[in-house]
């Protein structure tokens, strides 16, 4: 377990010192969302309606942005071989990688989301549900992303490949996430917000299994 935390610490430190940490992802998130009004016009009512959806789509894209370095950097300098050979189960290593990806990408974006929500005219009542949904859903993005990153280790132009592989698997996160974020804004019959939040949690929990197991399987065959 110590190795797990040591790995998380190393990754986070590396990301903050070399990769600019969450800063780059937040910057990307901001820029993508600022492009939206140029595309559809500055109509505030329209922006309110599409804000949850746009925020989630931008979240997915920003999460993809840093995935290609997740294992690639370690593969290039040989660290990955050591990680695979280490006594720690490879599943835990992948989990540590996903956790550190979430800490440096998912978490900063969740914190930045309300500010960007304001720019898209998202009502204040909608902020907390949005942040809650993103907090529950974004780990799934890092966990599923880790599988994609592990699959494309050692592939030239792997970044593009990761997006193609991973985005279809992000569909459930997007659907339940947007619906949970929107429930506070639109009058809907029944407890839709709670239901979608529960389903979002279920997807995250399932990814907690699929991510490390799938990622470790991919790394084992990729490194050999």
């Amino acid at each position: 377990m110590n190795a797990f935390f040591a790995l998380v610490q190393r990754e986070v430190r590396l990301a903050t010192r070399v990769g600019g940490g969450g800063g780059m992802a937040v910057f990307f998130f901001l820029i993508v969302l600022s492009i939206v009004p140029f595309g559809i016009g500055p109509d505030l009512n329209l922006l309110t309606r599409i804000a949850p959806g746009m925020l989630w789509v931008a979240l997915l894209l920003s999460a993809l942005l840093t995935l290609d370095r997740l294992f690639q950097a370690d593969q290039e300098d040989g660290t990955l071989d050591l990680l695979v050979l280490a006594p720690q189960p490879l599943e835990l290593t992948v989990l540590a990688k996903a956790v550190s990806h979430w800490l440096t990408t998912g978490l900063p974006l969740v914190i930045a989301a309300p500010i960007l929500g304001l720019m898209l005219n998202l009502p204040l009542d909608g902020m907390l549900p949005l942040m809650g949904a993103m907090l529950i859903g974004s780990p799934a993005l890092s966990l599923l992303g880790a599988v994609g990153a592990a699959l494309s280790v050692g592939v030239r132009r792997g970044g593009l490949l990761i997006s193609l592989l991973v985005l279809p698997f992000y569909v459930p996160v997007l659907i339940f996430g947007v619906s949970a974020s929107r429930a506070a804004l639109v009058a809907v019959p029944g407890d839709l917000g709670g239901q979608s939040l529960a389903l979002l949690g279920a997807v995250s929990l399932a990814s907690l299994v699929v991510g490390p197991v799938g990622g470790a399987a991919a790394l084992r065959v990729a490194v050999k």
Binding site: L151, F169, L199, V203
Partner: peptide
């Protein structure tokens, strides 16, 4: 590597299908 992807896809497809139905 592709075999791992196909199997991960098979695990995820029912979830995707369910979410799309729900949506």
């Amino acid at each position: 590597v592709a075999a791992v992807l196909a199997i991960v896809g098979a695990v995820n497809l029912p979830i995707i299908r369910f979410s799309v139905d729900w949506w």
